[in-house]
Amino acid sequence: MAPLQEQHQLVDFGQKSLLVSAAAIAFNPTFWNIVARREYRTRFMTKAFGGNSQTACYALAATIFSLGLCRDFFYERALRHQPSHPLLETQSIKFIAYALIAAGNTLVITSTYALGITGTFLGDYFGILMDDMVTGFPFNVCDAPMYYGSTMSFLGTALLYGKPAGILLTGWVLVVYLVALQYENPFTAGIYEKRNALKASGKTSEDKKEL
């Protein structure tokens, strides 16, 4: 009976790689939110880079990007250790997988292009604020294209590998991102509200240091 049970097993929860992948998925947004908020309140990274907020932001961007590569590595390794399912190994599923990956990457790349490096990687927390809200593509499609695009790529990869465990991890990705948005959106909005209040009060650009 053991071989039959293994044949119908959807997710192997005994694989440590699955837990490592889930932990990496949760760690990344937790890390950048904690670091960015500490930077906003103490300017510890800006001080570490000699008062250059631009360089500090680029350093955080490089760190976040590197952590993303590690997360993707752990995800792919977890999928390789998980059982496949015949229903996910059809040609039509492969086409859907490639479409999801292409659409997801399009959302991520175009949102990065629209925001720039500092706009994408939490430049607001470093006092590097955008003049106007970006409303064009892909932000006219969804409010968090980088998060939703990344989620689509995770799902596409899961389908491409034919792994039910990948679909489960994709659900975890979406939950983590939705929770992160609950913290990020109000905080970022508060930064810009403070900037607009300073403008309305007629204070000079030097007062932006208060942000």
Results as ranks from 00 to 15, higher is better:
Phe31Asn: 03
Gly51Thr: 06
Thr46Arg: 10
Phe27Ile: 02
Ser21Phe: 03
Ala22Thr: 07
Asn52Met: 08
Val20Met: 11
Ala56Gln: 10
Tyr40Arg: 01
Ile34Cys: 05
Phe27Asp: 02
Val35Thr: 14
Ala23Trp: 03
Thr55Asp: 11
Ala23Lys: 04
Arg37Asp: 13
Gly14Ile: 05
Leu19Gln: 14
Ala48Gln: 08
Asp12Leu: 11
Glu39Ile: 02
Ile34Val: 15
Ala36Ser: 15
Asn33Pro: 05
Phe49Lys: 06
Phe49Ile: 01
Gln15Pro: 00
Ile34Asp: 06
Phe44Ile: 09
Ala24Cys: 02
Thr46Val: 08
Phe13Glu: 08
Ala36Thr: 13
Arg37Pro: 06
Met45Gly: 13
Ser17Asp: 15
Phe49Val: 05
Ala24Arg: 03
Asn33Thr: 09
Gly51Gln: 02
Leu19Thr: 13
Thr55Ala: 15
Gly14Tyr: 04
Ala56Phe: 09
Arg43Ala: 04
Tyr40Gly: 02
Lys47Gln: 11
Phe27Ser: 02
Trp32Leu: 11
Thr42Tyr: 14
Lys16Pro: 07
Phe44Gly: 10
Ser17Asn: 11
Gln9His: 12
Thr42Gln: 14
Thr55Pro: 08
Lys16Arg: 13
Val20Lys: 06
Ser17Cys: 09
Phe31Gly: 01
Val35Cys: 12
Gly14Glu: 07
Phe13Asp: 06
Asn28His: 05
Leu18Phe: 01
Leu19Ser: 15
Ser53Met: 02
Gly51Ser: 05
Phe27Lys: 01
Ala22Tyr: 05
Ile25Leu: 00
Ile34Thr: 12
Arg41His: 12
Gly50Ser: 13
Asn52Thr: 07
Val35Ala: 15
Ile25Glu: 00
Leu19Asn: 11
Gln54Asn: 13
Ala36Trp: 00
Ile25Thr: 03
Thr55Cys: 12
Val20His: 04
Ser17Ala: 15
Phe27Gln: 00
Leu10Trp: 07
Asp12Ala: 14
Gly50Asn: 12
Leu10Val: 01
Asn52Phe: 05
Met45Val: 04
Gly50Lys: 11
Phe49Cys: 02
Phe44Tyr: 14
Trp32Pro: 06
Ser21Gln: 05
Ala26Lys: 03
Lys16Asn: 10
Leu19Met: 12
Ser53Asp: 05
Trp32Glu: 11
Ala48His: 11
Gly14Lys: 08
Phe31Glu: 01
Gln54Trp: 14
Phe31Tyr: 13
Asn33His: 12
Leu19Ala: 15
Ala48Tyr: 09
